[in-house]
Design a protein around this nucleic acid. Structure first.
Lengths: 218, 218
DNA sequence: TTAATTTTGTACCGTCTGATTCAATATTAG
DNA sequence: CTAATATTGAATCAGACGGTACAAAATTAA
């Protein structure tokens, strides 16, 4: 969002005891699990291994730490499911790999269930303009990444040339939100995989079948 | 969820100054906007027009008030978009009316943006088993309601007999989550309508065209 | 009228909240 | 070795937190 209050300085003073990225990892896990309002500074100091003044000097107040944690999620965890979009397979396989990677995340492989963006950010967005903007930005970026990949598929003739790429991207992005929330509700992995398959079919097959015979329905 | 601590009693003692449903309305609006962690008991007493002991006697502690508020949302607000599913038009029109009603809600016509279930409940679900169960239950009920309507359409031949009704219902329900979160991010009404149209097409048109010519794509 | 019953309103409980102050500590520049 | 600089850790701040005790108030049953 804005320039962090303090990047790792080097020079004279006492050296820092913490690693910037590691501390952010810990903050991320804490906010991810407990949400913004459910996380206290004591929770953060315990998880990050830093005392309050160090946190404030390095990241700013609680709200700023939360925003940094969300950005950190996008930069580290979201990468795990955005990367498969660049493998240049056919759109159907690529989308399913995308959703599979998301399912790995939201079922708790790298942290709590669900995604910090879908599960905790909306709760703050109605009260905090900063949170609302951050939520909007992350959704926009997801739309854009998916849209770029889908546009490639359209140009390659995998889907109809008349396809509305932006709407297909919005549809595909909606799948990530649904997977996230359902995972947090406790949905088992196979249920999430079924839903992902349904979205893949809706995005790729509902418009024009790339090559395989049409699936049963969903 | 469970029996409320106190339903409107009548008999001897001093009469209540508050109306049960009206107080729940106020609690709902407060939690809906601020989330669970962002709402204090002072917020609740101010909004509900009740002092703390009355709230505790009538609803229980903060967690119980929140759970009751979510149930109240389902019983009062969700009705506004579940009702259109019973009008017995063709599935396409009925789904669009369903989403239109949802858009009315999530764009702030009856309260804050988004839906209290999609926007605030997931934030608590990872820490509170009660919240997780409530989230799962609401999602399940939505799937069931949509599934029932879609099964009707299948039996009427509007969609293919081989359609996987449960997956189409899960897809349609995912649309409600996406609309809710995007609305909270500040998405304008027309963008939500486009997304809703995309979901309607994905659910009804992606499988078998009921009667109208196919839309452009989304 | 009186006794029983229920809700209200205030005041308060101990604890936790986010945030800050400040001396002690650990480093580098000169 | 000294001066300058930056971080740490403990202690502390005023206020807000969720929750409760208790007496005054308002009703109905007898």
């Amino acid at each position: 969002m804005s320039t962090p209050p303090s990047e790792p300085r080097r020079g004279r003073g006492r050296p820092r005891k913490f690693d910037h990225a590691t501390a952010l990892d810990a903050a991320l896990l804490t906010f991810w699990k407990r949400g913004y309002g459910g996380t206290s500074l004591d929770d953060l100091t315990a998880a990050m291994g830093m005392n309050r003044p160090s946190i404030y000097a390095a990241f700013g107040n609680k709200e700023a730490v939360y925003a940094a944690a969300v950005d950190h999620y996008v930069a580290t965890i979201a990468r795990r499911y955005l990367d498969p979009l660049a493998k240049r397979r056919d759109l159907r396989a690529e989308l399913m790999a995308f959703y599979d990677a998301i399912i790995d995340v939201v079922t708790g492989r790298y942290g709590p269930h669900g995604c910090i963006v879908a599960c905790t950010l909306p709760a703050e967005a109605e009260v905090s303009p900063q949170a609302r903007k951050q939520l909007a930005r992350v959704l926009f970026d997801a739309d854009r990444a998916l849209g770029a990949r889908i546009a490639l598929a359209r140009d390659a003739g995998e889907i109809g040339a008349e396809s509305d790429v932006r709407q297909l991207a919005a549809l595909a992005a909606s799948g990530t939100l649904a997977l996230s929330i359902r995972a947090r509700a406790g949905a088992p992995r196979r249920e999430l995989r079924r839903l992902a398959q349904t979205f893949v079919t809706a995005v790729t097959g509902g418009i024009k079948r790339p090559r395989a015979a049409r699936r049963s329905s969903a």
